[in-house]
Computed example of a mutant assay.
Amino acid sequence: MRLVHNSLHEEVAARLRERIFEGELAPGSFVDEVQLAADLAISRTPLREALKVLTAEGLVRHEPRRGCFVAQVTEQDLDEIFPVIALLEGRCAYEAAQHASDADLQALEALHERLARFARARRINDYYAANFAIHEAIIELAGNRWLAQVITDLRRIVKLARLQQLHAPGRLEQSLQEHLSVFAALKARDAVGAEAAMRTHLTRQREALRELARNQRSRIGP
Rank of each mutant, 00 (worst) to 15 (best):
A41F: 13
R91N: 00
C68P: 03
A56Y: 14
I124H: 01
E33V: 11
V34D: 03
Q72K: 14
R122T: 09
L209V: 11
A37C: 07
D77H: 11
G90S: 07
E136T: 09
E195W: 01
Q177H: 13
F21H: 01
A161F: 10
K159R: 13
L40G: 03
A14D: 11
F69Y: 15
F30G: 00
A129H: 15
A188Q: 00
F21W: 00
I85F: 00
Q98H: 10
V60H: 01
D32H: 10
C68E: 05
S181K: 09
I81W: 04
L163C: 10
N6H: 13
V53N: 12
D39I: 09
A37Y: 08
E57V: 04
A133Y: 07
L154Q: 06
L147Q: 08
F30T: 00
L36E: 03
Q149Y: 14
G67W: 14
D79N: 07
L212Q: 01
A148H: 10
S29I: 04
I134W: 07
H167N: 10
R2V: 14
R210D: 00
Y128R: 15
E173S: 03
T45S: 09
L141T: 07
L40T: 02
Q35I: 03
R117C: 05
L108S: 02
R65G: 03
H135F: 04
A56S: 09
L47N: 03
L209P: 07
E89N: 00
A194K: 02
S29R: 01
L166S: 01
V12L: 08
A116M: 04
C68K: 02
A37S: 15
S43T: 15
I220K: 06
A37M: 05
L154T: 08
A185I: 04
P222D: 12
R44E: 11
I134M: 13
A56V: 14
A133D: 13
E109L: 12
L8Q: 09
E63W: 09
R65W: 09
P27K: 05
I42V: 06
A197Q: 06
S101G: 06
A119C: 12
L111A: 09
Q177P: 00
I151N: 02
I42M: 09
Q164G: 13
V73F: 07
P83L: 01
F69V: 05
E57L: 08
A13P: 06
R61Q: 10
R217L: 04
E173W: 05
L147M: 10
E10I: 12
E18F: 12
R199A: 00
C68I: 05
Q106L: 15
T203Q: 08
E11R: 05
Y128H: 10
V182Q: 01
